[in-house]
Nucleic acid binder design. Structure first.
Length: 199
DNA sequence: TAAGGGATTGGCT
DNA sequence: GCCAATCCCTTAA
């Protein structure tokens, strides 16, 4: 079943990031369905997290959506090239988000290969937030898209992820955030080959 | 196999 | 102007 908005509006973004492992992320563009199981996430926690774009209550045109009530997409450009897909969580005014870093492909593999310009399926088809967005056809047009709609959504297919199969570590690429760069807020499925980094 | 550097653009200072 | 929540190709061992 599709996750209801109440899943996203809860206050503990770190817990939500963990719970998203084993859930299924889908996109539907012009009737073309692509998606798969989420195997890697990172939590970004609003004002108290120096790695978060909205820390210190910074509010710009780009970060505005982070203050929205949970359950919408935050898509933004990094390094001038890649669109990163984030899930906004918590209630209105609390700028929390979960970055989806990798999925295990399930449906629309042919289409994802086309979008990635790849000949055959390899782990790096969807391993990494930049390539994941390419494979799923996510771009900045999806900024603010509700995850309860028919374009981008997440489903619970009853996959149980036991706590001992979840690995935890510091987030990627946030060294500039000082102490907060060390927070163990990256979660991935132990031993899953679709994860972008196993360290 | 591991490490290094280029690509490329929007947002902030 | 500078820097960024990345990826991929090239190079060397």
């Amino acid at each position: 079943m599709k996750l209801p908005q109440s899943f996203y509006t809860r206050p503990n973004v770190v817990q939500i990031a963990q719970e998203l492992l084993g859930k299924y992320l889908y996109t539907n563009h012009d009737g073309i369905l692509t998606g798969g199981m989420i195997v890697e996430t990172e939590a970004y926690s609003g004002v108290n997290d120096k790695a978060c774009h909205a820390h210190m209550n910074r509010r710009t045109q780009r970060t505005e959506i982070m203050y929205h009530e949970g359950g919408v997409a935050y898509v933004y450009l990094v390094y001038g090239i890649y669109n990163l897909f984030n899930i906004i969580t918590n209630v209105e005014g609390q700028a929390d988000a979960v970055l989806v870093r990798a999925i295990e492909p399930e449906v629309g593999v042919e289409e994802m290969l086309l979008r990635r310009n790849m000949a055959s399926i390899k782990p790096n088809l969807t391993a990494g937030p930049g390539v994941l967005s390419i494979a799923l056809g996510i771009n900045r047009k999806h900024y603010g898209t509700p995850l309860t709609g028919e374009t981008i959504w997440i489903e619970d297919k009853g996959v149980e992820v036991p706590a001992e199969s979840i690995a935890v570590g510091p987030r990627i690429g946030v060294d500039y955030a000082g102490d907060d760069a060390l927070l163990p807020w990256r979660f991935w499925l132990k031993g899953n080959k679709w994860v972008s980094r196993k360290g």
